Amino acid sequence: MTIGPNRATSTAAIHAGYEPDNLYGPINTPIYASTTFAQDGLAKLRGGYEYTRVGNPTVTALEKTVAALEGSDYAVAFASGMAAVDTVLRALLRPGDHVVVSNDAYGGTYRLIQQVFTQWGIENTVVDMTDVDAVAAAIQDNTKVVWVESPTNPLLDIADIEALSKVKGGAKLVVDNTFASPYLQQPFTLGADIVVHSTTKYIGGHSDVVGGVVCGNDPELHEQLRFFFGWVGAIPSPFDTYLTARGLKTLPVRMERHCDNAEAVAAFLQEQDVVVKVCYPGLPDHPGHEVAKRQMRRFGGMVSVLFETEAQAKKFCLSTNLFCLAESLGGVESLVEHPASMTHVSVAGSALEVPAELVRISVGIEDEEDLIADLRQALSRL
């Protein structure tokens, strides 16, 4: 069966990128646990593979599946989401260039841009991506990248990707689509040039494998990414990509359950007196609700909550039972964390500093009533 750019369907998640071979016909992609491959002659590669640092059939299968889901010409897999971020920035930027980055970008992304790339003469401007006019004003002659997350991490702001694509000028619009996943949002249809994922999150979906991927349509960029893939060597192992591909098969059904539960959790938390604000794009009073309705299939599995005090936020994180206190997100299990002291501690004191009263919740696929019961007992301790 041949699956083309069939965006974000259950069929593509299961079938795109791999067909059972003629030898044994395995339904699942084999794990090609080989560092090197036999050649049929000098520089005559069998199937195009020579050395796993340059390419591996298991890795290729995952890349084709993700590309089909995003509707892109190609995808390149990496060992982690940060390796994907670093590689795409290396490919796009040169000394003297400029980056426009969101004021609510993932802390690790901003840390890389601010603390590493500035040493190589790369400038950056932090801007509110929900304000299209502000983004347009931040564009300079040397701007090569506009880096966007939507929804953002951790405040769940919504950027109008289509509107941003019209004001980016000659820069590349890079969209980190990790929070939405390819099932909920396809940035290429909205004008994005490049899409990045931490496959550690919703694509893998089971909190058991780290990875990243870059998707695009520009052949020149593809060639650069492939060079970096082999030269730098931040490659995923065949077993890691097998686990990621296995998780990806259930992405659509998992995302539906994540969204169902997140909507229930957000509605419940919004009714609690101790909660100051619930950040969830599915709520009608969310500033980006209408944009999210237009560019997303549903509103995602992430919910953030602001309490009155930092002490309440920390106490809440320490009081849940079913919601595990842990970093990361997008797995089948529900997680809770305090960004200011955990995932976003590296941006303390910067323009991206997050409120100390904020709690980020990754809503899993457990039974809704059990999740609500755990939240209720945790809130009762505040």
Rank of each mutant, 00 (worst) to 15 (best):
N6R: 13
A12F: 09
A13M: 06
I14Y: 09
Y18R: 06
Y24D: 13
A33D: 15
S34T: 07
D40E: 15
R53M: 10
N56G: 10
T58H: 08
V59I: 15
V59C: 11
E63K: 06
V66C: 04
V66S: 02
V66F: 07
A67G: 07
S72I: 00
S72C: 04
A79C: 15
S80D: 11
A83L: 06
D86R: 12
T87P: 04
V88T: 05
R94P: 05
P95I: 00
G96T: 01
V99F: 08
V100G: 02
V100C: 11
T109H: 10
L112Y: 15
F117K: 10
E123A: 14
N124I: 00
N124M: 10
V127L: 08
V127Q: 12
V132W: 13
D133F: 11
A134G: 15
A134W: 04
I139M: 09
D141T: 09
S150K: 08
L156F: 12
A159M: 11
D160N: 15
S181L: 08
L184K: 07
L184R: 14
Q185E: 15
Q186W: 06
A192F: 04
A192Q: 02
D193F: 05
V195P: 04
H197R: 02
T199G: 05
G204K: 01
G211E: 02
G212H: 03
V213C: 12
C215M: 07
N217R: 05
D218I: 00
D218K: 00
V232M: 10
G233D: 13
P236G: 01
S237V: 01
Y242A: 05
K249W: 01
P252I: 00
E256F: 11
R257I: 12
E263T: 08
A264W: 03
A264F: 03
A266Y: 05
F268T: 00
V276C: 06
K277Y: 10
Y280A: 04
K293H: 13
K293P: 06
R294N: 12
Q295D: 13
Q295W: 08
R297P: 08
G301K: 01
L306D: 15
F307R: 04
T309V: 08
T309G: 10
Q312G: 06
Q312P: 06
K314N: 03
K315H: 11
C317R: 00
T320K: 02
L322I: 13
G330V: 08
V332H: 03
L335C: 03
E337F: 00
P339R: 00
M342T: 14
A356I: 00
L358A: 04
L358C: 09
I361E: 02
S362A: 10
G364P: 06
E366V: 00
E368N: 13
L371E: 03
L379D: 02
S380H: 09
